[in-house]
Simulated scan of single mutants.
Amino acid sequence: MTAAVTFSNVSRHFGSTKAVDGVDLTVPEGAFFAMLGPSGSGKTTCLRLISGFEQPTTGEIRIFGEDVSRIPPHLRAVNTVFQDYALFPHLNVRDNVAYGLMVKGMSRTARHARAEEMLALVKLEGYGDRKPAQLSGGQRQRVALARALVNEPRVLLLDEPLGALDLKLREAMQDELKALQAKLGLTFVFVTHDQHEALSMADHLAVFNQGRIAQVGSPQEIYDRPSSRFVADFVGSSNVLPPALTQSLGGPAQWSSLRPESVQLVEPGSPEGQISGQVTGLRYLGAATRILLTAQGTEIAALLPSGQPVPAIGDTRSLRFDPKALHLMEGA
């Protein structure tokens, strides 16, 4: 498979701060690729390195095989959708979308026709004469997306574009972005700190931590088989079990990950129970209740489906799970 973007030992330093530290990364052509990590992990800096708004301190960046490490942003086959949309308030929607084509010297008639095509693509037919202030947050996000797509980039960069939307609209836009990417076949590189967003939208995922990549893989691979405690903690909600507890459950003396949905509650003393603990916390989640138990000094979470009796804080319960659900991690 052709690589849309390749990082080869790329670093970006700001004085003594290593925002990106020796990153090797391959983004396949046509992928919906997510960069996930906490604030300050280096994911946004990597996006800016692809766009050309930052230059690498060391290393090489290639876009479809071309070394772009020193090529300015406007000469790269990429475009960016920003979190704040960056729309021109004095221009109407049509001219906002057509702005890049105007800069390229395209005639007014041609660029407006192309802008209307893009507005139809993002389901905003008939909105061309409106100003950005007359639009909702989701509509402004679509205008920003149309403006980025009108220049026909080979790679579309999205810098937390859904961060300003409310939950319901955010979920709707996730579905629309994923469908649009599949329809166009473009390479999308999506930066987010929202683990659920990354897992639900991406087909490839890189988890960043302290300027480095902690793990790369499919969302399912990273969720089911995290490589380290950091990945297990950050991607989804996992029980990270210390070596002594893992060993007491029949595994080697090694850190392990056990997802809450793999854990079931049974009555204390039940022969099915693999470990017992005291209930220390309850959180109602609608479809389930999250139960926190402390066992051998470690807090373990389990999900109790709605409709089942919920224990009280202080009660003792045993836990059971399929041994295959216990994932051993190499990294501490």
Rank of each mutant, 00 (worst) to 15 (best):
residue 109 T to Q: 14
residue 278 Q to N: 13
residue 69 S to C: 10
residue 75 L to Q: 13
residue 208 F to D: 00
residue 154 R to I: 11
residue 3 A to N: 10
residue 195 Q to M: 06
residue 42 G to C: 10
residue 188 F to Q: 14
residue 140 R to K: 15
residue 185 G to C: 11
residue 255 W to D: 08
residue 5 V to N: 09
residue 13 H to K: 12
residue 300 I to Q: 00
residue 311 P to M: 00
residue 87 L to Q: 09
residue 241 L to K: 03
residue 22 G to M: 11
residue 95 D to W: 13
residue 132 P to L: 14
residue 30 G to T: 00
residue 27 V to E: 03
residue 331 G to M: 03
residue 116 E to S: 08
residue 40 G to P: 04
residue 291 I to L: 10
residue 272 E to N: 04
residue 72 P to E: 05
residue 110 A to F: 13
residue 120 A to Y: 01
residue 314 G to L: 06
residue 17 T to H: 13
residue 90 H to E: 06
residue 52 G to D: 01
residue 101 L to G: 06
residue 262 S to D: 08
residue 296 Q to D: 06
residue 215 Q to H: 15
residue 15 G to N: 14
residue 3 A to P: 00
residue 156 L to W: 10
residue 176 E to L: 07
residue 230 F to L: 05
residue 79 N to F: 15
residue 178 K to L: 02
residue 2 T to W: 03
residue 53 F to W: 12
residue 180 L to M: 13
residue 111 R to I: 02
residue 291 I to N: 09
residue 123 K to T: 08
residue 316 T to R: 12
residue 303 L to P: 01
residue 118 M to P: 01
residue 66 E to N: 07
residue 217 G to V: 01
residue 159 D to C: 05
residue 279 V to K: 12
residue 200 S to P: 15
residue 180 L to P: 08
residue 263 V to E: 06
residue 25 L to M: 13
residue 16 S to W: 00
residue 310 V to I: 12
residue 76 R to V: 12
residue 227 S to I: 02
residue 161 P to T: 03
residue 11 S to F: 03
residue 284 Y to K: 05
residue 34 A to L: 04
residue 279 V to A: 11
residue 50 I to K: 06
residue 137 G to P: 07
residue 278 Q to P: 12
residue 35 M to G: 09
residue 232 A to R: 04
residue 281 G to F: 05
residue 104 K to L: 03
residue 168 K to V: 14
residue 1 M to L: 07
residue 23 V to D: 06
residue 285 L to G: 08
residue 262 S to K: 06
residue 250 G to Y: 15
residue 8 S to D: 14
residue 115 A to E: 04
residue 150 V to H: 02
residue 207 V to K: 01
residue 141 Q to T: 09
residue 299 E to R: 08
residue 250 G to V: 12
residue 5 V to C: 07
residue 290 R to H: 09
residue 101 L to S: 10
residue 95 D to S: 09
residue 125 E to C: 05
residue 229 R to C: 10
residue 236 G to H: 11
residue 205 L to A: 04
residue 27 V to C: 07
residue 320 R to M: 14
residue 261 E to A: 09
residue 44 T to L: 04
residue 311 P to S: 00
residue 94 R to A: 09
residue 43 K to N: 07
residue 244 A to E: 08
residue 236 G to A: 07
residue 168 K to S: 14
residue 77 A to L: 12
residue 1 M to D: 02
residue 30 G to N: 06
residue 48 R to M: 14
residue 119 L to D: 02
residue 141 Q to I: 11
residue 315 D to I: 04
residue 317 R to N: 08
residue 107 S to P: 00
residue 37 G to K: 00
residue 232 A to P: 04
residue 186 L to R: 01
residue 271 P to Q: 11
residue 49 L to K: 10
residue 174 Q to L: 09
residue 97 V to Q: 01
residue 252 P to M: 00
residue 203 D to H: 10
residue 75 L to I: 09
residue 311 P to K: 00
residue 47 L to Y: 13
residue 314 G to A: 08
residue 289 T to C: 05
residue 122 V to K: 01
residue 297 G to R: 08
residue 141 Q to H: 08
residue 111 R to H: 13
residue 296 Q to A: 15
residue 93 V to M: 05
residue 60 E to P: 02
residue 307 G to L: 07
residue 58 T to C: 07
